[in-house]
């Protein structure tokens, strides 16, 4: 009798310690990155770093604007492609599709989620890049190499399909059937019901899904790096090469450490990513929490 209670107490303490240690990782990583990027932050004004457009570490110029615009434009392109497609198809899956169709498509989406980034990159190089340099680029009178923010955006869009769809389907399933029945019985067509009742009801959930997918897109490294061209410039058109923040870290970390402030700058890049992801997750969690409380 005593023994099992004693055992339980020890297990409780061990488990709790494990939990707290793991949770403190978030804080530790944040502090670690901050300390590591301090040399740069002390030396230069943070606003100048964020808005500077010249990246030449040898001259001590660390303008992050090209990378920020690179990340933002690639992510935006991905969202513009993925969001409408995912909203439409998850509505179809929940409202129209038969059970058999649902049971075939949802596992396929899971496969898409399981495909590693590097395979997306290979696909991007084999399919998306040639598609843009041979067909889409020339159609717009642009002789792009294909390694562009548009390629990055397309690859990224496919990568965020699964996370968007799985959250949207979940949110759509929380709609009470009574609500739909009421609207349908008033003579609305199904599409009108979707437009005027369902979409209004799930708007916060859809926003949460998009926000979460955005934070995933921000951090994606290898697949985007492989198709984006990686030139530190501010992209002026869809067919220009860009250089997202994660690619900057992956390409340069561990090299040229002798250049002053170089590793501090890369750590600052990582800190920037962490901050953005923290913020976006917080927003989507708050929205989803509110939805769960209502449901």
């Amino acid at each position: 009798m005593r023994l099992r209670i004693l055992k339980d107490r020890w297990i409780r303490i061990t488990f709790r310690t494990l939990l707290l240690l793991t949770l403190s990782l978030v804080v530790l990583i944040g502090i670690g990155l901050f300390i590591k990027s301090l040399p740069l932050l002390k030396d230069q004004n943070i606003f100048l770093i964020l808005t500077g457009s010249t990246w030449s570490p040898l001259k001590g110029q660390f303008g992050f604007l090209p990378f920020i615009t690179g990340t933002v434009s690639v992510t935006l392109i991905a969202l513009i492609i993925a969001a409408p497609l995912c909203i439409l198809s998850s509505i179809y899956l929940v409202e129209y599709a038969s059970d058999i169709l649902k049971k075939t498509v949802l596992p396929l989406i899971n496969v898409l989620a399981a495909i590693p980034p590097v395979l997306y990159g290979v696909w991007g190089i084999l399919f998306v890049v040639p598609l843009i340099s041979n067909y889409i680029g020339p159609a717009f009178g642009n002789n792009s190499s294909g390694y562009s923010i548009l390629s990055g955006g397309i690859v990224l869009a496919v990568m965020i399909f699964p996370i968007m769809i799985s959250i949207m389907v979940e949110v759509l399933q929380t709609i009470p059937p009574d609500l739909k029945a009421a609207s349908l019985s008033l003579g609305a067509t199904r599409w009108e019901t979707i437009q005027k009742v369902i979409l209004k009801k799930v708007r916060p959930g859809i926003i949460a899904a998009i926000v979460l997918a955005t934070s995933r897109a921000f951090g994606e490294t290898i697949a985007v790096l492989m198709v984006c061209g990686n030139i530190p410039q501010i992209p002026k058109s869809l067919f220009d090469a860009g250089y997202p923040i994660p690619a900057l870290i992956a390409n340069n970390f561990g090299e040229m450490m002798s250049i002053p402030h170089y590793d501090a700058a890369l750590m600052f890049a990582a800190l920037l990513l962490l901050a953005i992801i923290f913020l976006f997750n917080l927003i989507s969690r708050l929205i989803l929490n509110k939805l769960e409380e209502k449901a």
Partner: peptide, 11 residues
């Protein structure tokens, strides 16, 4: 879950 692996790698 959302921290990109490159950040884990860099740390």
């Amino acid at each position: 879950f959302g921290i990109p692996s490159i950040v884990y790698g860099a740390i």
